[in-house]
């Protein structure tokens, strides 16, 4: 029996075969993930079509400054992630660890900023069910029910997105640990590449959340 490569399962012919299957698995999983957010996009579209005024008013009260900065943060994390995958396939261990750490840091920074934003939203009484000022919206001649629907979708979409990012940060943490122990080689770098795909996907979702939540209509200020 030929010597099996390290990390190779018995039912695959070669590391390439295994890596390729892992990547396909991740792509298929991302198709599933697309429908996770797809359900929310559908509900959002239905209500936005029906209550455009409420959605526009709600959107203008979100903090575009934090939303915009977070977009840049996440895009930068995608860059470091892509470079990390490159470093892994070149076998540059030290660079790989540094880039993974940078990605981890940027992902956490996104979550930190998001938390600050949620807190502000709470202080501005923009949280249906917990802190929501129906009267204030009526004074603006906007139906509070419609704003509430917008805000619910804002929290569910960003919340599920943040959950995905948290999972991504957890997995990257494990990968960083393994990378620092020299676990990955140019032949065996599929886990990094696979979770890189996941990371980029979470980034892509945010690229849609930005216009759908923060850029619904013409704004006059960032917040």
């Amino acid at each position: 029996m030929p010597v099996r490569d390290r990390g190779l399962w018995h039912h695959f012919d070669s590391l390439d075969h295994q890596a390729d299957s892992n990547l396909l698995g991740m792509w298929v999983f991302l198709a599933t993930e697309l429908l996770v957010f797809g359900a929310l996009f559908t509900g959002y579209s239905a209500y936005r079509w029906r209550y455009p005024a409420g959605f526009e008013a709600g959107s203008r009260h979100l903090n575009l400054l934090i939303g915009g900065v977070n977009t840049v943060v996440l895009l930068t994390s995608s860059l470091t992630m892509a470079l990390a995958v490159r470093a892994a396939s070149q076998g540059r261990q030290a660079l790989l660890v540094r880039l993974l750490l940078a990605t981890l840091f940027l992902g956490s920074a996104f979550l930190g900023l998001k938390a600050v934003e949620y807190r502000q939203d709470y202080l501005e009484r923009l949280v249906p069910g917990l802190a929501f000022d129906r009267g204030a919206w009526q004074e603006l001649h906007v139906n509070p029910n419609h704003v509430q629907l917008f805000l619910i979708f804002y929290y569910v979409m960003t919340g599920i997105h943040a959950l995905h990012l948290t999972i991504g940060i957890g997995v990257l943490g494990i990968l960083t640990l393994k990378a620092s122990r020299g676990h990955f080689t140019p032949q065996y770098s599929a886990p990094v590449e696979m979770w890189g795909l996941y990371w980029h996907f979470v980034d892509i979702i945010w690229l849609f959340l930005l216009p759908l939540l923060y850029l619904v209509s013409t704004r006059t200020s960032f917040y």
């Binding site: 298929v28 198709a31 599933t32 993930e33 429908l35 996770v36 797809g38 359900a39 929310l40 509900g43 569910v156 599920i160």
Partner: peptide, 13 residues
């Protein structure tokens, strides 16, 4: 793969 996630999100809502 393509139907189950929608049910999951529905139940979250």
């Amino acid at each position: 793969l393509l139907a189950t996630p929608v049910l999951a999100m529905l139940f979250v809502l």
